[in-house]
Amino acid sequence: GLVGWHREQRAIDRQLRGRELFLRDHELIDPLTQLYGTEYLYAVLQREITLHRSMQKPLSLLLLDVDNFADFNRQYGIAAGDNYLVQLSELLSNQLRYSDVVCRYNGDRFVALLPNTAQLQANIIAQHLQQQFSLLTNQNQQPQLTLISLEVEQLSAKDALQQALNTLTSARKHGPLTLQTD
């Protein structure tokens, strides 16, 4: 009887560990967009930087920012803003390659990791995405977007994302729905 009880306890322990890992993984997922969040982005980006450095392969980032999203929420309501973010996340997930990782970086920003992708390829992907953005909602209710692409040359995820944010800031000076490359 004791051996049977011990086996049963081990089986229950395995099930509980599996559920715990499942729940921990869900903490990394944004509940609204169902994309991974910032914590996951930093971890995966650092891993990819290390991997691509050792293999001498290119790694690129796309950073998408919804300009003046707070104004959009005030004008059309939070439900419309949430709906737009969900549509935007679905579009990004559907239009990017299986190997790409899309994360919600902040409330109104998204980052896509493009492994084995040089700057020229990232620019083509960004241009394709720009064409798709007009399909999201009615043009009168669509916020303006800024999209940048850059090849990662930094050694840390923090530095790479800071460079992307700097590039985004300079791209905003050129106006909405601009494609800025670095």
Rank of each mutant, 00 (worst) to 15 (best):
V152H: 00
S149Y: 00
H26A: 11
G175S: 03
L45Y: 07
Q34H: 14
A126S: 15
L113T: 07
Q127R: 09
D65M: 10
A11I: 13
V66M: 08
K158S: 11
V111N: 07
L114R: 04
H52L: 02
H128T: 07
Q141Y: 01
G4V: 06
I12P: 01
A164F: 09
R104G: 09
M55W: 03
D25T: 11
S149A: 13
H6R: 14
A126T: 04
V66E: 02
V152F: 10
Q180T: 09
W5T: 13
I12C: 05
F133I: 06
L155Y: 02
L59F: 02
L35G: 00
H52T: 05
T117P: 02
E90R: 15
L51W: 06
P143R: 01
T33R: 06
L41A: 04
N94H: 14
F22A: 09
Q132W: 10
E153D: 02
L96C: 14
S134G: 02
T169L: 13
F110N: 10
N106V: 04
F69Q: 03
G107S: 09
D71I: 07
F69S: 09
L2T: 11
L61F: 11
A157M: 05
Q131G: 15
T181Y: 02
D100T: 13
A160F: 05
Q87R: 14
S170E: 12
K158M: 09
E90D: 12
L28H: 12
S60I: 05
L88T: 10
Q15P: 00
E27P: 01
Y105S: 05
S93W: 00
L2G: 05
